[in-house]
Amino acid sequence: MTRFVENSIVFPYKRSLGPVIGAFMTGLTEQRILGIRSGDQVIVPPLEWDPQTGAELDPDGMVEVGPAGTVESWTWVPAPSEQHPLGHPFAFAFIRLDGASTPLLHAVDTGAPDALRVGARVAPRWRGSRVGHIGDIIAFVPGEQPEVDGPDSGPAEAPVTMMDYNASITYRNPVPPVLDRLREASRDQRIIGQRCPVCERVYSGGRGYCPIDAVELGEEQDVDLPHTGTITNFTIVTPVQYPGQTETEPFARVFVLLDGTDVILPYQPVVELPVGEVRVGKRVAAAWAPPNDDIDDAGAMGGAYGHLIGWIPSGEPDVEDPDLVNRIF
């Protein structure tokens, strides 16, 4: 049975709008839809450039269009996604607003597909509270008259220059069998590496292939690795805050050369080792979570070490070897 891990990419992007898109968005808060002149055309929605030639368009050439327009083409969305403007079935349509040379794509809310046809007249249903976003128009509705949904909070107090874009995508990744095998082994406090049958290099972290010989490594290549080693190098990170950041205090990541091997475990956390005492040559031993603990997968990339939660000082004297620091990989 394949196991999956979910990983969501969620980020509130902040976009700057520049003169033309900014004016368009500001217009939306005023319940006005603006286009921009390019020769004898009026481009809607407006761009800073002519879409055919790339020529710079004059922001002073912005003109109001609509608010009503004609459906030029449409498609019915029977099962809207979470990103769509409406939670119930609707149409996406190309709407040629009165006075525009190009159609605007937006939602048309008619309840049922048979209420829609090419040539239908539609007008915007404005959100009562508008921020300067294409979603200030909830949807277009049949007819000539714009509507406002709920109490009208009026136009923006200042020109709109920025826009939020909240993207969220969830990925469901199958966990490669080698990672699951290593994870299970970690429950029994084993660290598994894999030996390439061609070059005999041993790889940690459940990579499942040798990058030198470009061969896959299966279960038959598994080897048990020792639980003690020496810190060869490290980094101490002062965390920067960002959405999803879990750290608040400086934290260490160390590189551990496992005893009697050529294997480095890179960027490992430490346990009961204050950042001030992390140094090259420090002797450490594996620290394990209790076998019954749930372990955090942190996605398919981070699950290889399983119950190995980090490295704890072993109390042995430091190793003095000037070459140690060069062992990063």
Partner: peptide, 17 residues
């Protein structure tokens, strides 16, 4: 400035290096 490099380098996970 539209996003955050530390966030993106960690693909949205915590403890991005």
């Amino acid at each position: 400035s539209e996003g955050n490099a530390q966030f993106a380098l960690g693909s949205g996970r915590g403890a991005s290096l």
